[in-house]
Amino acid sequence: MSTQSYRLRVNGADHEVAEGWIGESLLDVLRDRLGLPGAKNACEEGECGSCSVLVDGVLSCACLVLAAAAIGTEITTVEGLGAEGALTDVQQAFIDAGAVQCGFCTPGLIVAIHDLLDQDASPERLVVEEALSGNLCRCTGYGRILEAVDLVAARRSAS
């Protein structure tokens, strides 16, 4: 197997990847080599959003990023969103709104919603729906998730 050693910058810290098979996706490397299982493995073809991360600030599916080619980028995963153990407002809203059931889609949605609200502080419902249309959830029917987004937007504008 063709391998490569390289360094990735994830959540502000450098990580060495020693002799990784070059076919490994960023999702594989985060989960299996770097101990960051927050990005989830549900489809591995970009059709579910469970592995959403930010690569240089761009919302991406980690399963579609060749890890060894992501050298020199800043990668942010769900683990890197909040300050040391504290909940972000999006995470808190998910709990308050009842947006979590099995939780498998949750980390990807949290990352996607942060990305959305960083670009548009109080998005229209349709904008939210389109922005989250790449994140499948099988438990909730999305009702409480959309509620959580509204809750964050309302709390941000109130503060």
Binding site: R31, D32, G35, L36, P37, G38, A39, K40, N41, T77, V78, E79, G82, L87, V90, Q91, Q92, F94, I95, D96, G98, V100, G103, F104, T106, P107, I110
Partner: peptide
């Protein structure tokens, strides 16, 4: 009452260990 899930915090932070996260 609408009690919050005891696993909610771990799930929103990506720390909840699913069966595919074991090592």
């Amino acid at each position: 009452e609408s009690a919050p899930r005891p696993d909610g915090v771990a799930k929103v932070q990506g720390r909840f260990a699913f069966s595919s996260d074991l090592f």
